[in-house]
Design a protein around this nucleic acid. Structure first.
Lengths: 120, 120
DNA sequence: CTCCTGTTTCGACGTTCATCGATCTCTCGC
DNA sequence: GCGAGAGATCGATGAACGTCGAAACAGGAG
């Protein structure tokens, strides 16, 4: 791929992402958008990686600290990228190491999406 | 796994599903179990079907009422089966029609799983 | 019993995905 | 500059998944 220079609006403004599941039937695009986040957490390895980052102090962790999930290093990097694309994690390079941290706003949105569905 | 009778130090006995994501790093089997539920909601069609059931009055709906999601009817049935296997829906036959309803307890557990992760 | 309607199951097909080894980029220390 | 370590990217491969049409199954109506 030769789009190394491309830098589109990749920022996921996820606050208005999705209405509660029990409010009304989701439209096709709402479902498309929301399903991406659930799908990101729908893999055991990704879920472990995410949990490892979320449970680390400060809500952030170096890749080297969480790479012990039973898969190869490229696979870990691949899954972290997926989580980042889903808007659940953000990454920052500090010297030699890369740190990932959770996005609490997105998590809260997903949580309310479910709890409000249960409340009704 | 053959955990016919588990009685470990598991204080959250709400569901057989999962500890909060930010409590500690999930183990392999915890992640395996939890990921199944997220994966069930990780498909746009399934999410629309689930939302359609959840937003219907009484939290239950006939298949014929929610089959308008843009895919063939066998596909709808397939996805409803997946949601049922994930423990998110339950089905009941009443005469000619089959009604699906949401499982509020599982939803609440998933919600807390996320909101507590965000709270920390 | 026979037809009709609603729902599930069965194969099959094409796509997506998780995973790996090899390679590349970036940063630091010498 | 050069080598070493940490992560990311690339290309390939096998498994899992979503989708469909056809057929089977289950009840109600005539």
């Amino acid at each position: 791929m030769s789009n190394a220079k491309v830098s589109p609006p990749l920022r996921n403004e996820v606050e208005p992402c999705c209405p509660p599941l029990a409010e009304r039937p989701l439209t096709a695009e709402e479902a498309e958008r929301t399903a991406k986040m659930f799908k990101a957490l729908g893999d055991p390895v990704r879920l472990r990686l995410f949990s490892a980052v979320a449970s680390h102090e400060g809500g952030e962790a170096c890749v080297c600290d969480i790479s012990d999930v039973g898969v190869s290093q490229p696979t870990v990097s691949h899954h972290l990228k997926k989580l980042k694309e889903a808007g659940l994690l953000s990454s920052e390079r500090r010297g030699t190491w890369v740190y990932y941290r959770v996005e609490p706003a997105v998590l809260a949105a997903m949580g309310q999406l479910l709890t409000r569905a249960a409340a009704v």
